[in-house]
Every structure is written in C-alpha cells, then in structure tokens.
Amino acid sequence: MATITLKNITKSYGQNKVLDNVSLTVEAKERIVIFGPSGCGKTTLLRIIAGFVAPDSGTLFIEDEPVADSGVIIKTPQERNIGMVFQDLALWPHMSVKENIAFGLKAKGVSGAEREERIREMLELVDMSGYEKRKPSQLSGGEQQRVALARALVLEPKILLMDEPLSSLDAKLNIRLRKEILSLQQKLGFTLVYVTHNEDEASDIATRLIRMDFGNSI
C-alpha cells in the first residue's frame, strides 16, 4: 500500500505554472528527498500534500484514499494525520515549549495524564527534557529545531513533511541534526518527505531522491 500517491498534479499561481503534471508514489516508511533549485515548486508540492493548497488539477491519495482532487480539498490538514516541520519552524512565540507540543494533543482531545506522558516522552526523545517552560525566543536554533520536531511527531503521524528544516543552521549543527532525524525516523517508522536544496543533506537522508526542475519531477 502506497502512503502518498500524486497523479498528474498541476498548480499555477497566476501565469506562473509551478507544478506541471507531477506524478509520484511514496511507499510506507520511505525517506524521499525532493531536491532542486529555489522556486522550482518543492514547497508547493509539500503544501499540497499537507492540505494547505488544493491542486488545480490531478488527484492526491493518502493511503489510497483521495484527499484532494482538481481544486477541491476533500480532507482538511487536520484530517490527514500528517506532521510538518516548516522552514522557519513556525513555533508559536506566545506559548512555552510544552504548550507548543500540547496544542495538537489538546485539539485531538487527548486527556490530561496521557497528554503529560506523551509530552514527556517526546521531549526525552528529542533530548529537550527540562525545557518545558521556556519560550521559543529563549532557545537556540538547534533547540528550536528539536521542539518543532517534537511538536510534529507527538501526534504520531504516519507521514512527516520537512520543508528545508535545517537551512538556517550552521554546518556542524546541520550534520548532527540530520543524524538525529534519521535515528527518529528509524525508531518511529514514519514516512518522510524532505525538501532541501542542499545536495549533501539530500544524499545523507534519502532512500530515494526526487530531483525537481521548475515544475517537473525528473
């Protein structure tokens, strides 16, 4: 059973065709890296999978179920069980580390005791125990990265989307976090769709590399 299937996806913004008839199948527990120059449509592809944007034409399946079809979003982002780490991380500045991670659990109705336990486990997993009360502005770049990962993974998504998550970090930290992401993926077994324009990062993480060139996967 394929986790993600894109069939003839097309997307334009005004006159600019960002995705042109893109088709792709991602198997369960696969780590695919979408790699290509800036502006080639990588982020748009990720946003279509997440459910923030509807494709103009074509169909998107998640676990063989259609979730978006020709301009219509059939399943909203919160119904897709997908985690995402954004390029700028998008940590909520007014919430503490714990509140950032708890937000999705609360929305899903996870009870207090279970919620606490899952947050604790997740913070342990990303090596951030003891940082619960800190605000994002009080964390370093690497720590923010780990919180964003914990927030995305706490809901136990089957798919994790990562949009150039390490691009703002220095080379040393970038390499260390790549290893941590790989180790987390092996431990938790989610399907990873990772977007980057860094060739080293791409080859380090990918089990399969998709090269995009202005609207088309190659």
């Binding site: 982002p77 919160q78 995402m84 998008a90 007014h94 999705g104 609360k106 929305a107 899903k108």
Partner: peptide, 27 residues
Amino acid sequence: DPRLEEAGLLAASWKEVMTGITLPLLI
C-alpha cells in the same frame, strides 16, 4: 505568520486555531 496557523491546522480546526493561536497573537 500564516505558518503559525498552518502548524495548528495540521492538528486542529479553525475554531481552535483562532482561539489558541491567532487571538493570543492579537493581544
């Protein structure tokens, strides 16, 4: 930042995102 709301929308409805994320940012 719309990313902050989108990050919330992955797990919650607009109602929860508005009360939990957007409105506190409008304080």
